[in-house]
Design a protein around this nucleic acid. Structure first.
Lengths: 273, 273
DNA sequence: ACAAAAGTGTTCCCCCTACACCCATGC
DNA sequence: GCATGGGTGTAGGGGGAACACTTTTGT
């Protein structure tokens, strides 16, 4: 029976993770709509207390932690599925998620134990012939704001948690290696694109920005050089305001300017760090 | 009947493309071994006569051109499948192929017409229930030497041909967009890694190398700067020999040095063009 | 001799690095 | 006033772009 709970958990979104009202009817999925051959796994990163963290979810206390993920629908491509699943699991929408790799090892996942278990329970009526031999998974990653998922507390269950990437618990299937590859992809991406703009608050200071880069890339940079580089990129606007209430010179506040950014990308500017 | 030929062609390697002896028994595949949900498509690039070209194959004169590709086996990951299929189709082995994207549009490919056709032909005994609704495809690309596939002539059938990327014929399914995405991925890759080393002949001159870069990236570069940059990368050895028989100053010959290259990568050197 | 194309040198300028210096604020 | 942390200035160097000059070959 426990196996069936796991099985069901994999197929259904974890309702405890959803904001009320985000999804009309969380239980209206139909096995026939899902393509059990393809799943999607989302690696959500954030930075908190000087650490790079990943969002993990858990189906039940008896079961290991996993990445938020799920099966792709038969009439859906993987990009849409990733966005849908992200929405179902975290309430996040319109997030820049990047496909970084597919995981296709035949041994990475198997329905076999569930099939055995179902066969032994004659009360359950499930047509096991529709379970595929292998499930491939498409990995997506994104950088999001810490608050966007863990707003003030309590609203999301304890089954969803941010975890320091250096101190991961045991993860199901090959999710540990998916996270490792995602972190690599994130750093590679960050070397050439300032992806972290949707992790930034509306207004931020240059030292705060530098701090983010340093945490994610794992190395420190020169303060002066960093500022001038960012200003030369010309994708941030310096505001009139300054941050007050600090026991030192008040730093300028900046704002990410999406138009300028897209214009710069168009012109082929390379954001080499 | 024609439909069935197409169907069979998709499932079997095109034997006319294989070097004799490359594959032990080209017809010993078994439908049961294949995972019909996942295919692999290989975009092979080469440079010839100042043009970037792609390798296309055709199943029969009645049918459109396609990328060399095929289904992944049930007990095989996609990397292995890509290498196997490349071997079956072109005789090439140990080629650096890079996974660049997956194509999962539910409408991109359908077995439906084949299933209809098979149903109407009662002589054919095929269990159509095993055909999936959608086939996703993993795109791989590589840069190879022109001669490696079209050695001197005749050995490969006319069904396999290099085609200028600017003048592609009609292609089956979504192969046109797969090629477009592959070309993008190739350029992106080339901006930071000298992937073209396995496209180079054993010995080459700097202007020849520059010519390759210019064709693939689609822009011209300064001669002097290019040479010095390449030399500073320190991944090529200058040989004693020079190229003779040219009506101008004899250029030095260089050789790619794989050890130096890997050492440079290890040290985190960035090959920014 | 001449054209062609390769190698090399020169100049300018930008940007990166490192470090120093100065500034504003809360305590 | 002083510690703290942020802004800005400066000097050095490496490397890119552009261009000129030199070299070597076949015709």
């Amino acid at each position: 029976m426990k196996i069936f709970i796991i099985f069901e958990s994999i197929l259904t979104p974890n309702t405890q993770l959803m904001k009320p009202g985000d999804l009309k009817n969380p239980f209206n999925f139909n096995l026939d709509d899902l393509d059990l051959n393809i799943s999607v796994d989302c690696v959500l990163f954030t930075v908190r207390e000087g650490k790079l963290m990943v969002l993990l979810t858990r189906f039940s206390p008896d079961f290991g932690y996993a990445l938020p993920g799920g099966f792709v629908r038969k009439k859906e491509d993987t990009d849409s599925a990733a966005n849908r699943i992200l929405m179902e699991r975290t309430g996040l929408n319109h997030i820049y998620m990047k496909q970084f790799k597919i995981f296709s090892d035949p041994e990475r996942f198997s329905f076999q134990p569930m099939i055995e278990s179902i066969r032994n329970q004659e009360t359950l009526q499930v047509d096991v012939t529709r379970f595929p031999d292998r499930v491939i998974s498409v990995g997506y990653f994104a950088l999001v704001r810490y608050e966007s998922i863990h707003p003030t507390g309590g609203e999301y269950s304890e089954d969803s948690r941010w975890t320091d990437i250096q101190q991961l618990p045991d993860l199901i299937f090959d999710h540990a290696s998916i996270i490792a590859e995602a972190a690599e992809a994130l750093r590679r991406e960050l070397y050439f694109k300032p992806v972290l703009y949707n992790l930034l608050p509306e207004k931020f200071t240059m030292p705060e920005l530098q701090n983010l880069y340093e945490i994610i890339l794992g190395r420190s940079m020169d303060r002066g050089s960093f500022q001038r580089k960012m200003i030369r990129w010309d994708i941030f606007e310096r505001l009139e305001e300054k941050r007050t209430g600090v026991a030192h010179k008040q730093p300028f506040l900046y704002r990410f300017n999406k138009e300028k950014y897209e214009q710069a990308v168009e012109q082929g500017i390379r954001f080499v760090l």
